[in-house]
Amino acid sequence: MLDLSVIILTYNEELHIRRCLENVCPIAKDVFVIDCFSTDRTQEICTEFKNVRVVEHAWPGNQAAQFNWALDNVEISTEWILRLDADEYLLPELVEELKKEIPTLPQEVTGIELKRRHIFMDKWVKHGIYPVVMMRMFRNGEGRYDNRLMDEHISLQSGHSITLKNDFCDHSLISISDYCRKHINYAQREACEVLTETYQLREVPVQATHLGKQATAKHQTKSGYNKLPLFLRSFAYFLYRYIIRGGFLDGKEGFLFAFIQGWWYRTLVDANILACKKACGNDKERIKEYIKKEWGIKVN
């Protein structure tokens, strides 16, 4: 067993939570499920595992804030912390790599970046965006999420990170209809982030010392992407993922994954931005009010 605590944020995750807990409980000393008052069997399933503790906390508006609340309010005694979603799990090869590497890491290594493998409609989508490298593990006291509504990343307070060779999986079991409905909500949050950056609707906090190589590059790329013309950029992004990065090699599932995430979702983001601009022009206060009224998001 590793000197490791796992934090999982949940709301009505009975479809996924057992698989996730069966995956991490054998290797972690403690597992903290931060639950937003689920009405299904999520909490009941958690009680079947001895090293799982359920902590209820009202949803603060985004995952970054919920995770940071857990860091500040849950008693974590282990050296390392891992963040997972309920629909994610570690591959056996990654588990073995963690067992080998964790005990031997020097103190200056304070974060671990992991490669995320997307399983879409039960198929590994090998092209388009794979691998997505994310900071998901860090030494206790060294990591926090940056202040974003979408595309949030863990940043380190000191030290540096390493990247492991093996993958963890993002493997949602929800229907394609529910998958699309989730992205409608994501599109509003992403549109809010773009408008916030464009009009400087809130003060941007000073970044911590280390955000991860791919995360840093991604933020820089998105800043350039957001300067491109609405709608044209979403089509270009789809072509990049599907043609240039080889998404077409993954068959029908690869097309749907690239279309939903790379074109349809990004087009929804632009549609929300256009609607806001048509209603508010460039008036910052009106934009903030629109975001709060129409999307239920308060810009701090």
Score class of each variant (00 low, 15 high):
residue 102 I to W: 02
residue 270 D to C: 09
residue 250 D to M: 06
residue 33 V to H: 12
residue 16 H to E: 09
residue 236 A to I: 08
residue 7 I to M: 12
residue 3 D to V: 11
residue 146 D to W: 02
residue 299 V to E: 04
residue 240 Y to G: 04
residue 178 D to G: 00
residue 115 K to E: 07
residue 287 I to T: 03
residue 277 K to A: 00
residue 156 L to P: 10
residue 33 V to G: 08
residue 139 R to A: 12
residue 253 E to R: 06
residue 282 N to P: 00
residue 223 S to T: 12
residue 31 V to C: 10
residue 64 A to L: 01
residue 258 A to Y: 00
residue 213 K to L: 14
residue 220 Q to Y: 04
residue 148 R to C: 01
residue 118 H to E: 15
residue 33 V to I: 15
residue 4 L to G: 09
residue 284 K to W: 00
residue 62 N to M: 04
residue 284 K to M: 02
residue 41 R to P: 02
residue 154 I to D: 03
residue 117 R to A: 14
residue 3 D to L: 06
residue 204 V to F: 01
residue 23 N to H: 05
residue 160 H to R: 15
residue 291 I to T: 01
residue 235 F to L: 15
residue 170 D to S: 14
residue 14 E to Y: 02
residue 274 L to H: 06
residue 244 I to K: 15
residue 146 D to H: 05
residue 221 T to Q: 14
residue 57 H to V: 04
residue 132 V to E: 14
residue 98 L to K: 05
residue 278 K to G: 00
residue 121 M to R: 15
residue 224 G to K: 13
residue 137 M to G: 09
residue 173 L to C: 07
residue 282 N to Q: 11
residue 240 Y to L: 14
residue 36 C to E: 12
residue 154 I to R: 06
residue 255 F to D: 08
residue 260 I to N: 06
residue 267 T to G: 05
residue 206 V to P: 06
residue 206 V to G: 01
residue 261 Q to G: 15
residue 199 Y to Q: 04
residue 148 R to E: 10
residue 118 H to M: 06
residue 175 S to W: 09
residue 257 F to S: 02
residue 150 M to A: 11
residue 252 K to N: 03
residue 126 K to R: 15
residue 292 K to V: 00
residue 33 V to Q: 11
residue 24 V to Y: 06
residue 157 Q to F: 08
residue 220 Q to K: 15
residue 188 Q to G: 00
residue 225 Y to F: 14
residue 26 P to A: 05
residue 153 H to Q: 09
residue 260 I to G: 00
residue 283 D to E: 12
residue 167 D to V: 13
residue 54 V to N: 13
residue 204 V to P: 00
residue 165 K to I: 07
residue 141 G to D: 05
residue 213 K to M: 12
residue 9 L to Y: 02
residue 278 K to S: 03
residue 262 G to Y: 12
residue 298 K to M: 02
residue 94 L to S: 06
residue 57 H to L: 02
residue 38 S to T: 07
residue 73 N to Q: 04
residue 180 C to R: 14
residue 165 K to R: 15
residue 149 L to N: 13
residue 158 S to P: 03
residue 42 T to S: 11
residue 216 T to Y: 10
residue 82 L to Q: 11
residue 211 L to N: 09
residue 238 F to L: 05
residue 2 L to Q: 11
residue 181 R to I: 11
residue 12 N to C: 04
residue 70 A to W: 04
residue 166 N to I: 00
residue 70 A to E: 04
residue 98 L to T: 04
residue 249 L to W: 08
residue 138 F to R: 07
residue 130 Y to T: 11
residue 165 K to N: 14
residue 272 N to P: 03
residue 279 A to D: 07
residue 285 E to K: 10
residue 153 H to R: 10
residue 81 I to R: 08
residue 228 L to Y: 03
residue 230 L to E: 01
residue 148 R to V: 01
residue 72 D to C: 00
residue 19 R to C: 00
residue 81 I to E: 05
residue 188 Q to R: 14
residue 63 Q to K: 15
residue 234 S to P: 05
residue 239 L to A: 14
residue 240 Y to Q: 13
residue 193 E to S: 12
residue 246 G to L: 10
residue 38 S to Q: 07
residue 260 I to D: 07
residue 243 I to P: 00
residue 34 I to H: 01
residue 72 D to G: 04
